[in-house]
Design a protein around this nucleic acid. Structure first.
Lengths: 248, 248
DNA sequence: GTCGTCGTTTGATCTGGGTCAAAGTCAGAC
DNA sequence: GTCTGACTTTGACCCAGATCAAACGACGAC
């Protein structure tokens, strides 16, 4: 457990893998030095809980590596995932002391944390941080609204295809993309987590994945490794405009 | 049509009904003067479209009075509401030129608009605006996540109860609250719009409203005026923690 | 090796909410 | 007044996805 995650810690921000995408993306060298002074790393192993809804939360931070989920739970145990946190995503809300959601590490996870008070202080002093945070929050809001369409109006099959295309394209920027147009990636989530993401049961998730496999939309190696032979086909199955609507 | 909405326009920001809740809330007198110079009002009558998804959008703005909806539409016509815009809510995204959603006036509507370029200019100069916009965006993100739980995991009855309690509590701050603990308000949405909000069909909305009425959770006068005799009961029906979880 | 656990698949059955259809209510136009 | 159209309600029926249940596969502990 906790293999080299602790030794992982990049000593200075210049070497950080998320330097140009996280909340610090716009900071100049000076600002980075200041951040460097108040930052600290925390590691979590897969399955571990980062924070519980309602807990006192005295830090904010960025996911450096690994994946975490943001979920909401009803009294009777029904749960809905409301955020999927990938490297560079921000956790916590400046100006709030209590966590509003459960945060759980889905894989081994490293976070770059800042104590809340000094971070909020810095936010007022260095507009670059607030600017970047606004941009990231607006992006998250757009993602949440896309997700609302998925939850409210798509069929189970479309939901699965949507999730697969989201994961595929989030990874696309990073790696993968087998020249030939094929895409290969590992599902970071269990069937149950996918069900929580999509407002389904895990059985339905399993059945629809099997169906997409049977129909040749995806190819599976084992239970986690997915190959998408034709991404446009997957987008069609997701019910999305195939000519990916250009925003921004 | 378009009754006194145009003459409505408050001449200066000091008199504005949303002065202390909109994106300008934190501005001081100086900043307000600058905003005053670049603002203009636009009126829309009920049912009119403010902007279509994909349209070029050269302004941003705040809802001054009236109600509008933000919706997404799939190619085959399925629609999902992704935002309900009440007075003081912000429309548009700085740094984006195309509208991402359809915006439709549900009632007669007055908006306070700013051309995008000067507004973005001001945002970089006066941190008060960006600060407030960040706060508002974070609030919207929280609301979107709450909404995701509703869409993904609640039953039709719970969905209706949730919507009613959201509308009730959004209004609560303003007016209403019959001392006795009763709440009375008008539904601003048609059954169809409620269905779009909740990921249901209008028939199901109608049936569930009838059921809540039959069970005494709400009382209807006509089709739009709602009385809630016992708000805690309504919250229970919504499946929410009755002891309203305190965040912030 | 066996056992236990966790994640997954598959089958059988049930049901909440969708779909199709018809009729009711109300406000504004004429 | 009555006609029209928008909105709403209610009924009958059906199906996608939930629920209940069983079994399978992979992996780590022993």
């Amino acid at each position: 457990m906790l293999p080299d995650t602790l030794t992982f810690a990049p000593r200075n921000c210049g070497d950080c893998p998320i330097r140009h995408r996280a909340v610090c993306a716009r900071c100049d060298a000076d600002e980075l030095t200041k951040l460097d002074q108040i930052k600290y790393y925390r590691s979590f192993s897969a399955g571990q809980s980062v924070i519980w809804s309602g807990d006192n939360m005295d830090f904010v931070g960025s996911v450096v590596s690994g994946i975490a989920t943001l979920t909401q739970t009803m009294e009777d145990g029904r749960t809905q995932m409301v955020g999927l946190l990938l490297p560079s995503d921000f956790v916590g809300r400046p100006g709030r002391n209590q966590a509003a959601y459960d945060v759980v590490a889905v894989s081994d996870l490293v976070m770059c944390c800042f104590r809340k008070a000094p971070f909020e202080q810095m936010m007022t002093e260095t507009p670059h941080i607030a600017q970047r945070l606004l941009q990231m929050t607006l992006d998250e809001l757009d993602a949440a609204r896309e997700w609302m369409l998925v939850l409210g109006r798509k069929t189970a099959r479309e939901k699965i295809a949507s999730l697969l295309s989201i994961i595929a394209s989030r990874n696309a920027t990073l790696e993968m993309a087998t020249a030939s147009g094929e895409m290969v990636f590992d599902l970071p989530l269990t069937r149950e987590a996918m069900a929580d993401y999509l407002g389904l049961t895990l059985e339905t998730v399993s059945r629809q994945i099997s169906a997409l496999k049977r129909d040749g939309v995806i190819v599976l190696e084992g239970k986690r490794r997915v190959t998408v032979p034709d991404f446009d086909r997957l987008m069609e199955e997701a019910g999305d405009d195939s000519d990916g609507g250009i925003l921004s």
